[in-house]
Write a protein that binds this DNA or RNA. Structure first.
Lengths: 192, 192
DNA sequence: AAACGCGTGTTGAATATTTAACGGCCGTTG
DNA sequence: CAACGGCCGTTAAATATTCAACACGCGTTT
């Protein structure tokens, strides 16, 4: 509702630059080895500027993850509003497109020790998203919805991780079809 | 000699950003259609900032060309200092590497009406570079050195332009070998 | 004709970022 | 132990950039 008071362009550019070089470094070396100095140097940003926006490199990593999770969320909710093709269950392709378009980030995430932070949030996002899709009256022997969502979400992430780690060997279209079939087989979707 | 008083990082980042989006636009549409507003918008830079560094879009284009010409010059002179492999005649590969590494720019240059500005400066750079390589006592019927340089430089640019326009169908290594042979056949190089 | 939209250059005040410096901590080297 | 180098996190003053607002020209619409 409230029109977010357009943030100063300098802030946008600084953050962009900082995040970009941080992710580069993140894919090159161990997180613990990365130094604020390096990030600033590569981003052509003063060291102080980083502290102006992030309290330390852990915070920086958190913010990066947060940003992408939020993007994914808004991607889903925006599409839900659009009536015909709802959410990530009926058409997972846009989700895969997003993964593809930000390959450097997700690739770095999946090939790093600190993946746990990330996986946890991603898993939460997916399972919540699936939960609401399973509200239909179920004539099957009652399987707990939350449990099932967790199960499917974990499976979904497993596939994504495999896909990213193998340099995206299939198109997003193909992946979307596969996932949709898997979902259908497990009766996740809602309508008739 | 004088250590250039390290320019403010904000200037560096702004110029980088401006030039980047300008070149993007340059490869997308006709130069005359490009507007300062567009450049600023895409670069996440205030319109005023562009005027702070460039007087108008023509100046901006000039500066872009100038930058690359200077890079090429310093690339050659630096290598001349290094004794064993001198200049662009004995080993043109680094030159081709530079073209390859800045493909977007040169590609835009060669596929645009305004190529003339660029070609003129590039031609001048090459021919001057060749001139100094032809100082040797020549037992051939006297062909004017300047004329010959112009001739060879034009030929060189022709090859580069063909290579860029065709999306670099050969490796820089291969191109360098070809060019070196052509130079030798025309007795451009100095030492026995 | 007047009114409008759109791009250009240019200003002044507000603000983000830079620079250079500080003190502190830690690991290495003498 | 002392000295050093490297990174940290923070500060004050200098500076580049932003924003919003001008006035201008120019083509289009009313």
């Amino acid at each position: 509702m409230e029109t977010t008071v357009k943030t100063d362009r300098r802030i946008l550019r600084s953050k962009q630059s900082i995040i970009k070089s941080f992710l580069e470094l993140f894919s090159e070396k161990e997180f613990e080895q990365i130094t604020i100095n390096e990030i600033a140097e590569r981003a052509n940003v003063n060291r102080g500027t980083i502290y102006l926006h992030y309290s330390d490199k852990y915070d920086l990593l958190d913010k990066c993850i947060e940003d992408h999770i939020n993007e994914l969320i808004s991607l889903c909710t925006k599409r839900e509003a659009h009536k015909d093709k709802q959410g990530m269950v009926q058409d997972p392709k846009p989700i895969f497109d997003y993964f593809r378009d930000h390959f450097p980030f997700f690739s770095a995430m999946f090939s790093n020790q600190r993946v746990f932070l990330f996986r946890e949030q991603l898993l939460n996002f997916i399972s919540v998203n699936l939960m609401v899709k399973m509200k239909r009256p179920d004539n099957q022997p009652d399987i707990d919805h939350e449990l099932k969502a967790q199960f499917m979400a974990s499976a979904f992430i497993g596939i994504v991780e495999w896909w990213i780690r193998h340099q995206m060997p299939h198109s997003t279209q193909f992946m979307a079809e596969q996932v949709r079939n898997l979902f259908e087989n497990n009766q996740v979707y809602t309508n008739h």
